Simulated scan of single mutants.
Amino acid sequence: MNQKIRKKLLFVLLTLAILAGGIIYAINWAFFDIQRISGQEYLAESTSPNGTYTVTAYLNNGGATTDYAVLCRMKNNINGKIKNIYWQYHSKQADMVWINYEIIRINNIEINVNSEIYDYRRN
């Protein structure tokens, strides 16, 4: 009897843990993952000094109740992969300057395009 209760309790706890993990993942995906955002209005484009990366900036309009935001997407020109690397609210421009082959400064925020993402909500 004690073994049976223990198995049921383990099953219930495991089910609750999986459910909680799924809910946390869904909330993060739906509200905090900038990879889901697409660019609206083209602003500018800048290619790294060695031509490996191209960063394209877009102006996004959230509608009447929100301000403009800038989204920058980085494309790896070697393998074609694209990822969002910069998301800034209350901004209408993107001043982009490459510091070296992998680091770009966008509106005074330095980002290593290989490993970093700037999201105004997390900084």
Rank of each mutant, 00 (worst) to 15 (best):
Gly51Lys: 13
Ala69Val: 03
Asn76Met: 05
Ile24Arg: 08
Gly80Tyr: 11
Met74Leu: 13
Gly62Lys: 00
Cys72Pro: 00
Leu59Phe: 05
Phe32His: 10
Leu19Val: 10
Tyr25Trp: 15
Tyr68Ala: 00
Val97Gly: 06
Phe31Met: 09
Phe11Gln: 10
Thr54Phe: 05
Leu19Gln: 07
Arg121Lys: 09
Ser38Glu: 08
Trp29Thr: 12
Ile18Asn: 07
Val113Met: 02
Glu110Pro: 04
Val113Cys: 04
Arg105Phe: 14
Tyr68Phe: 01
Tyr53Glu: 01
Asn114Val: 11
Val12Arg: 06
Thr47Met: 04
Ser48Met: 06
Ile5Gly: 03
Ala94Gln: 07
Ala30Trp: 15
Ile85Gln: 00
Lys7Pro: 08
Ile23Val: 12
Asp119Thr: 07
Cys72Tyr: 00
Phe31Gly: 05
Ile109Leu: 04
Ala69Met: 03
Arg122Trp: 14
Ile103Val: 11
Asn84Arg: 08
Glu45Lys: 09
Ile78Thr: 11
Ile104Glu: 01
Leu71Arg: 04
Lys4Trp: 15
Asn108Ser: 14
Ile85Glu: 00
Lys75Glu: 12
Leu59Lys: 01
Lys75Asn: 11
Asn50Gln: 09
Asn107Leu: 05
Asn50Val: 15
Ile23Lys: 03
Asn112Ile: 10
Arg105Asp: 13
Lys4Asn: 12
Trp98Tyr: 02
Thr56Gly: 03
Gly51Phe: 10
Glu45Ile: 14
Tyr86Val: 04
Ile34Leu: 01
Ala94Met: 12
Met74Tyr: 07
Asn108Val: 15
Gly63Met: 00
Ile104Gln: 03
Arg105Glu: 13
Lys92Thr: 15
Leu19Gly: 06
Tyr58Trp: 14
Glu116Ser: 05
Gly22Ser: 15
Gly63Pro: 00
Asn76His: 02
Asn84Ile: 14
Ala64Leu: 02
Ala69Asp: 02
Asn123Phe: 14
Asn76Tyr: 00
Ile78Lys: 04
Asn123Tyr: 13
Asp119Gly: 02
Asn2Asp: 14
Leu13Lys: 02
Ile117Val: 13
Arg36Ala: 08
Cys72Leu: 04
Asp33Val: 14
